[in-house]
Design a protein around this nucleic acid. Sequence first.
DNA 1: TTGTTACGTAGGAAAAAACCTACGTATAGT
DNA 2: ACTATACGTAGGTTTTTTCCTACGTAACAA
Lengths: 108, 108
Amino acid sequence: MTADHVFTALASPARRELLRLLREEGSQPAGRLADRFDMSRPSVSEHLKVLRDAGLVAETRKGRERHYRLEAAPLMEIRDWLTPYERFWRQKLTDLTDLLDDLEDDDA
Amino acid sequence: MTADHVFTALASPARRELLRLLREEGSQPAGRLADRFDMSRPSVSEHLKVLRDAGLVAETRKGRERHYRLEAAPLMEIRDWLTPYERFWRQKLTDLTDLLDDLEDDDA
DNA sequence: TTGTTACGTAGGAAAAAACCTACGTATAGT
DNA sequence: ACTATACGTAGGTTTTTTCCTACGTAACAA
């Protein structure tokens, strides 16, 4: 739910893979997701819990199945967090452009 | 250096705080950064190592000091990683807009 | 109702992360 | 040359994370 939870959730490759599967293949029951991993089903279930706590997935019960769907909204926080850093990598490009311009001026 | 390293580095609040300090206050020697933390200096040094391995900071030796500076470039990978998810939170907004449009049509 | 399927949770082992206090090394100042 | 400062690294402890197997529960199927 907090940005901290989201960063923590994204730190695991398995959890990022879960998000990718839900994004590319749509909502799925927990078991079908678990089949894709070289890992026990309960372990995948725990990863889903971490994602749930971060608000990145939500479940809908359909009979005995639990369908998980992607909830991308919390990722906006990550995006917002990145924003003030954009200036810095852009600056690098600007510096490079300026350098090239200077070289061009020398030629002229 | 890999995206995995970057995600891992960002998972720690202490390391995100280090990045923030470098961003807002500019390059600083390791000791001055460490002073800002309620943590031993060597522990901060280890966090800096994780950031270094992720390519998020770089050091320049100045006498006996080591000045750390922010290297924002690897954050672009995070940004790129987020891109395919944008569609999903935008969809939510679109759904809401459509719903409102429908209500409007009913009125008309 | 009895068995089967789809799950989450408990409890615990193993691995990784986070922290500490020494300690070593290089530079700067006297 | 001697002392102080600014760091990183070693080695070890504690905490957290990650994974497992075993078990409990609810829903469906016969």
